[in-house]
Design a protein around this nucleic acid. Structure first.
Length: 373
RNA sequence: UCCUCAGUAGCUCAAUGGCAGAGCACUCGGCUGUUAACCGAGUUGUUGUAGGUUCGAGCCCUACCUGAGGAG
């Protein structure tokens, strides 16, 4: 049921592909909006359909804590529960174990941690994570991994990567639904040797797709860009690669250039709620006083609902007045911006002009992939 | 006309006679597999006015100004 078609490779190294899932197809490279708790914050599923989002994310850890995977199973699965008939990908909760710094203990069998909601103690294992993901019913599910921090010494990074491999094998054994594609996750922190070993170990397990994890955890972008080709060169060409948690406009293009097919990121929706719009000319902090009487749309030439109907001055007013509509409008714009950017990127790849497309984008965006000229 | 109370940052208010502060507002910065409509930083003063006491006054004394309440 799950199939990846590699349609074309641009001279730059960027790939054009198509993912087939039980709930529809996804053109790659793609940006996936994040709906951690079965909701992409501040927008409706109708908004997501209108901006042509082909797939969204949800999170295993959050949904297991609340409302609980059994409730969602009884509700008919995640798609039906949240009224999203297109593909869904669930993250395993491995990253939450890493980011919820509060009481947690990582052992070979699994991870003991406290819920950030009510402090109750829980034990997640690879088997438990997969059981939850099976209950939720997403089209693509992620293996339960151990994400290393930055910086991280080599011995610790190696231990985490090797444990991630053993857990990946356990996830594969525990996985029961053939209509869900289970992706393994490459770790290895910032050590080329560990990244290569991780890519190889997971490739040997033959997953239908591969996540690249443990990046964008505080390291300089140059370091992330250095790690990417080391991994993508070793992963099987005909399988999709998903760079987890990455999604600033510049990183999307730099990632695609290095052979990444899928991205997800909370950045677009988070900065939106904090008053910043992503535009072709860089980030626009629309909450700033400079826009009090700025009657241009957030991004000139943008076709999104917010830009077609409202000015920066109005949206800034809404933001300063703490009107919830501000968060809705900027979120719609930012998501639309990244989805449209990837659509344009795909068109460029199809015509073998991705390198020029990227150069043109950065010339307008006012930065290179490292965040400055 | 008299009595009482109160005047401190844009607002609401702190500050045993000993470096004039907080919250909010405002300004700016940050945000990358969401513990985030969040976090951080910064600007703002003839302490109502004029005198006096004191080594030193936002604070004590005098007069005046303004506001609120009360009496007539």
């Amino acid at each position: 049921m799950f199939r990846f078609e590699l349609l074309h490779e641009d001279p730059s190294g960027a790939r054009l592909g198509r993912l087939h899932t039980p709930h529809g197809t996804i053109d790659t490279p793609c940006y996936m909006p994040v709906g951690t708790q079965a909701s992409v914050k501040a927008v409706t599923q109708r908004d997501l359909r209108e901006m042509d989002a082909q797939i969204i994310l949800a999170n295993t850890y959050h949904l297991a804590m609340r409302p609980g995977e059994e409730l969602i199973r009884r509700a008919g699965g995640l798609h039906r529960f949240m009224n999203w008939e297109r593909p869904i990908l669930t993250d395993s909760g491995g990253f939450q174990v890493f980011s919820l710094a509060g009481l947690r203990k990582v052992e070979e069998d699994g991870v003991t941690f406290q819920s950030h909601i009510d402090g109750t103690r829980h034990f997640f294992t690879p088997e438990r994570a997969i059981a939850i993901e099976n209950a939720l019913g997403a089209d693509i599910i992620m293996a339960f991994d151990e994400c290393s921090p930055y910086p991280c010494d080599e011995a610790r990074a190696q231990a985490a990567a090797e444990r991630t491999h053993r857990w990946a094998a356990r996830c594969k054994s525990a996985h029961t639904r053939e209509d869900q594609a289970l992706f393994g996750i490459v770790q290895g922190a910032f050590y080329p040797r560990l990244r290569r070993e991780s890519a190889k170990a997971l490739t040997d397990m033959e997953f239908p797709g591969y996540g690249i994890g443990g990046l964008s955890v505080g390291e300089p972008k140059a370091v992330m860009y250095e790690m990417l080709p080391i991994v993508t060169d070793l992963l099987p060409r005909e399988k999709p690669r998903y760079l987890m948690g990455v999604g600033s406009p510049d990183c999307l293009l730099e990632g695609a250039l290095r052979g990444v097919d899928m991205f997800d990121c909370v950045l677009a929706t988070r900065v939106a709620r904090n008053g910043t719009a992503l535009t072709g000319r860089g980030r626009l902090v629309v909450r700033n006083a400079a826009h009090a009487e700025d009657y241009l749309p957030l991004d000139e030439g943008c076709g999104c609902y917010a830009c077609q109907n409202y000015s920066r001055a109005y949206i800034r007013h809404l933001f300063k007045a703490e009107e919830i509509l501000a968060l809705h409008l900027i979120s719609i714009h930012n998501l639309h911006f990244l989805l449209a950017l990837m659509k344009d990127a795909r068109a460029a790849i199809a015509q073998d002009r991705f390198a020029a497309f990227k150069a043109d984008f950065f010339a307008q965006y006012g930065t290179d992939g490292l965040g400055k000229f």
